[in-house]
Design a protein around this nucleic acid. Structure first.
Lengths: 339, 339
DNA sequence: ACATTCCCGGAGAACGTTTTCCCGAGGTAC
DNA sequence: GTACCTCGGGAAAACGTTCTCCGGGAATGT
């Protein structure tokens, strides 16, 4: 029951440690007969290579750190899931670090992971600016892929949804279903998602007339803000509420219902991200689905492809998908258009 | 920029590797003067101990595996968060493994984590029975704490909420607010949470009369089942729907609304777990809050306290808390009673 | 027949720590 | 003065791999 090592297998199979290692790792051709003997002995003894020793010698732990602001943010679990599966499929393990939305904790966690010799880092930065130094330092030491949110230009490779395209899909849909007076409920601050979605709204809303692009309320990415925003907006009677994420939209739906507004009859509401909650809201929320599996696949692809050339940072943007549900379609959900 | 090792610090401070190690690890008293020199050199060079080498030598990685069925299950993220914080506070790191609700994947993940020499495992088993062998094997190798769900008696230490107490709180509350005809919507199968909550309902419902304990519908722990269950139950016009978890309850709320039922006027609905969605449902869901932080604290306490005596498995049960919201109180939420 | 290559396998260094063992200096007890 | 601690410190083993180097034999070429 005690650990069986290469030495044990070597002794049992009557050859040297080096040979056993070569057979099991397949790093160099070995005579067919000896290979058979070794494999049999390894099997019989139940040998499992010690990954720590392997890591020390080969300078690669087969471990990737995953640093995120708050696992309780409802958008992250599905992303974590996909990343975990993608990495485990490649035989790598995931060291998880939750930052509690605090840049200092984030820096500490990154340091702890680096001390543990992670081969690479997946990181969703807490803050566009305040995460930057720690992220840049880390990116200088290991391959690092930024996910979902940016962290200043040229700091590291990044993979994210194309926020502008998503917002365009929403506005296009609203226009096609006859909405005329949209209004945007977004988040203040410099987080990339907040900025990109806001500016994309401004750009796209021009098609609804000059004043539509100006109907913007900014708070944060929370349900509470969604509720509060409705109180500020509803008197102006917009016929569509474009929310910067699903939490805001859910809050808006709740408050609109309290006020007796008819969604989607009087006013359409849309979200962004397609968190699980979106489909469960009442009415079910029209939203922009992030291509989570593709994000994960692209992220893992990035870190295998890049040894660490510091010159060219890559920023991959993936196409989102519009998910049309009841909150924007009086006659019930439509079939999403192909794009 | 290349890794600075003990050897470098030794050279810079003019003493031996052993001494440096002793100073930095504090394992043996060292002369005050040398200690100062060493610490200064370490600081100046920016020395960070290589955790992999440390792990190899000391046979302890300072790493704990966390194995769970599905990170996308809305109850888990907060638990993961608390566990992660509790462990990181102790200087340990978390290797995350998501099993995709599949016992085979679970066994593979457990094996992968053991190969990585985790010091211990936190595990939420996928299935009461089909997880058992893999869990028992793992528990024989490292300290293992079962969380939230059981896995047969005597397999490993476990920490979970006291489901019976939670269900009792619910029934007590319903009785106190005048409900007379409760009905239970639970999950079939042998999962410990499903069984315990079901039997606790049966025991507690006896106070409502003999037929109340028999009003039980069993499906699974999903929103869909909650919706479906309402269709089977509503014709009998119960005045309270006791759901085995929040997802079921949310599904029930949705369907009841579609049917035009008045919640909580005509019928109260309660859940279990207090997932984030519970507070956002409409009406907000009365439910039983799991003491997530305490679960995590107790779990970490268990694995430090127990070297691995195979004789006595400990099963810790923690008291839940009733969270009273609008779904069970016609006059708006009451103040939760102290207990 | 001899040089060259190739193939298979072993001995041992290396990875960066922790820890055991040892040594010398200085103090104390007799 | 000798015996015996204690204390600060160094040399080197050990952890379990991977990988480099080396050697012996067979095969091939001239």
């Amino acid at each position: 029951m005690a650990e069986v090592t290469l030495k044990d297998v070597a002794r049992a199979s009557g050859c040297s440690i080096a040979t056993v290692s070569r057979v099991l790792a397949g790093t160099r051709p070995v005579g067919a007969e000896t290979a058979r003997t070794v494999r049999e002995a390894a099997e019989r003894l139940g040998y499992r290579p010690n990954q720590v020793a392997r890591a020390l010698r080969s300078r690669s732990t087969g471990t990737v750190g995953l640093v995120l602001p708050q696992i309780t943010n409802p958008f992250f679990p599905s992303l974590v899931r996909e990343l975990e599966h993608a990495l485990h499929a490649g035989g790598r393990a995931v060291l998880l670090a939750d930052c509690d939305d605090d840049p200092l904790t984030e820096a500490a966690r990154i340091g702890a992971l680096l001390d543990r010799q992670v081969d690479a880092l997946f990181l969703i930065p807490v803050d566009e600016h305040r995460s930057r130094d720690a992220v840049a330092d880390a990116a200088a030491r290991v391959p690092l892929v930024l996910l979902d949110r940016g962290c200043g230009p040229g700091v590291a490779d990044s993979v994210a949804v194309d926020n502008a395209a998503g917002m365009a899909l929403v506005l296009e849909h609203l226009a096609a279903t006859g909405r005329r007076r949209p209004c945007f409920v977004g988040a203040a601050g410099t987080a990339s998602a907040a900025v990109e979605r806001r500016t994309a709204y401004e750009a796209g809303a021009a098609a609804f007339g000059p004043e539509a692009a100006a109907r913007i309320e900014l708070g944060d990415f929370s349900v509470e803000w969604g509720r509060a925003a409705v109180d500020r907006i509803w008197p102006a009677r917009p016929d569509a509420l474009v929310c910067a994420n699903d939490l805001i939209a859910v809050g808006a739906l709740q408050r609109l219902r309290q006020l007796g507004a008819d969604v989607p009859g009087e006013i359409a509401v849309t979200g962004f991200d397609d968190i699980p909650l979106a489909g469960l809201a009442d009415p079910a929320l029209t939203t922009v689905r992030q291509p989570v599996a593709e994000l994960a696949a692209e992220a893992t692809r990035l870190l295998t492809h890049r040894p660490g050339a510091p010159g060219s940072r890559r920023a991959v943007r993936l196409a989102p998908q519009l998910v049309i549900r009841a909150s924007s379609t009086p006659g019930g959900p439509l079939i999403p258009r192909p794009r």
